[in-house]
Design a protein around this nucleic acid. Sequence first.
RNA 1: GCCUCCUUAGCUUAGUGGUAAAGCAGCGGUUUCGUAAACCGCGGACGCUAGUCCGAUUCUAGCAGGAGGCUCCA
Length: 578
Amino acid sequence: MNYDNLRHSCAHLLAKAVLDLWPGSHNAIGPAIENGFYQDFDMGDVKISEADLPKIEKKMKDILKGWTHFEYKEVNLQEARKLFAHNPYKIELLEEFAEGGKKLLTNNPGGFLDLCKMTHVENPNKEMQHFKLLSTAGAYWRGSEKNKMLTRIYGTCWPTQKELDDYLTMLEESKKRDHRKLGKELDLFTFSDLVGPGLPLFTPKGTIIRRELENFVQSLQEPFGYQRVMIPHLAKTELYKKSGHWSKYKENMFQVTSDEGVKFAMKPMNCPHHIELFARKQHSYRDMPQRYSEVTSVYRQEKTGELIGLTRVYMLTQDDAHNFCTEEQAVQESLNVYHIIKDFYAAFNFSVGMKVRLSLRDPQHSEKYLGDNATWKKSEDMMREVAKKAGLKVYEGIGEAAFYAPKLDFMAYDSLGREWQLATIQLDLNFADRFDLKYTDKDGKEKRPVIIHRAILGSVERFMSILIEHYAGAFPTWLAPVQAVVLPISDKFAPYALSVLESLKEACIRAELNDKNEPLNARVRDAEMQKIPYILVVGDKEVREKSVAVRKRGQKESQTQKVEEFISQALADIIAKV
RNA sequence: GCCUCCUUAGCUUAGUGGUAAAGCAGCGGUUUCGUAAACCGCGGACGCUAGUCCGAUUCUAGCAGGAGGCUCCA
């Protein structure tokens, strides 16, 4: 179902309402977007905020009554200049369209003339009744910081009231899954004003999840011959000058100067370090590929306004690896990486809802990239071959490549529908040349290795944020910071509860005892709210039978099991990752 | 960085130009309980810095922190 016409029509209605309420304001563009629309305005000195939205909505409803249809007309440049003389944004657009040889089209619903190529609904006053304005925002004209900041109003519109209500309910529900909210409630991470923004502190519970994720990815990649390495988190700025990162990321690097005047940077990526590791000695084709892997942090100066919870931070941790291989090995090596990604994400049922982007160079701006056209063609072709052999449906992202290599990026969505990059495979034919890396081939000649840069989680922090929202905090047993809680019905049974706890701990199940002086109901409630997978209640009966009353998360009914029986079931869950 | 909005206790919230209310959590008791909140009591906060004012948590400004957004092009 495509509601673009409806939503785009609604953006016109919004424009008319704002222009009526604030004479002298100008509307810029107002496209339909996923689930709604927006309209940009130059409001002059007027400030509008969310508090104004109800007033605008009311005005829209009034205006809508008079909108029976959209009248279309093609105009020539001269006419258009006259018609939109008052609006510099429309003038800029129409001059540009005319220059590009495009037709100039206008529409005129209820006497409101606008420049627009799109098609609209047939019966505005019948079809457009179910809308809601959602938020205001600042947005640069045409997205460029160099341009004026306009006021953007976001809204949504649906064919029926029910669909509108359902959508609004869905938005509310999504907010409850927000990882920042759950992170606090489940005590997974925190921020300190004194430590600084964009620098999350992980609690003992949050750290358990991180460790489990790291161990899991390690267990998947080990069979593929990865070797672990360790590098310092600083490097002389010369390293980044050589790699080319310096000119590209200079303003995003954290710099440190030593007493001796040598300039260091906190590493914003790991490739140059790993490359220097490879360069330490001669390599034979027999030793290829060399796969250096490491879970390590990088430091990036982001625009302060762009920091978001764990998804965008100053220090992020990558499960990074650089695989140095021969050109003949590169496609297969990339496919092996894909297998790890596939297995990893399948464990979380992430296969649905993830998109794969083939991130390519923008040929219009070849100056932004290392290497020549032929090299890029080759690496992009190889990347395409990987995607094809992996059976991946990809969409192309022109200009999304790294400055040194094309990528396959695996994208996920957060609770507000924002798209984020997680896993990545990058096939790099440039850095080896830049750093003069080589190996000796069968024929005794020196050749350039190919470098596969890859990450499975991408950023551990970002992956966690997506994961928290994916599970709404109810982690599968293997990830749950507390896997089981033992609740004695009263003090009398505390010794037995303690012995159960000991047995669980011996079996390496993360268990806690809650013998606080509170009624059982209250402690069950606590455990449910903490989303603990297993609640084990013990009383008279359990002491007699050496058993536990097991209540699985989400189930009302409990089931009595021998302690050993429960332990083997829980361990089976953990191994099966459910 | 820029635009708009927000900041009251550990958390969620109430409220005021005359220094503030509550629930949960915490602590101390009482209670000894069978699957989503037992009872009594006790501590604890107006983000920071200026300004206006007799007086600021409340108004203004700056700073810090947070939220949403910053091409899905007429």
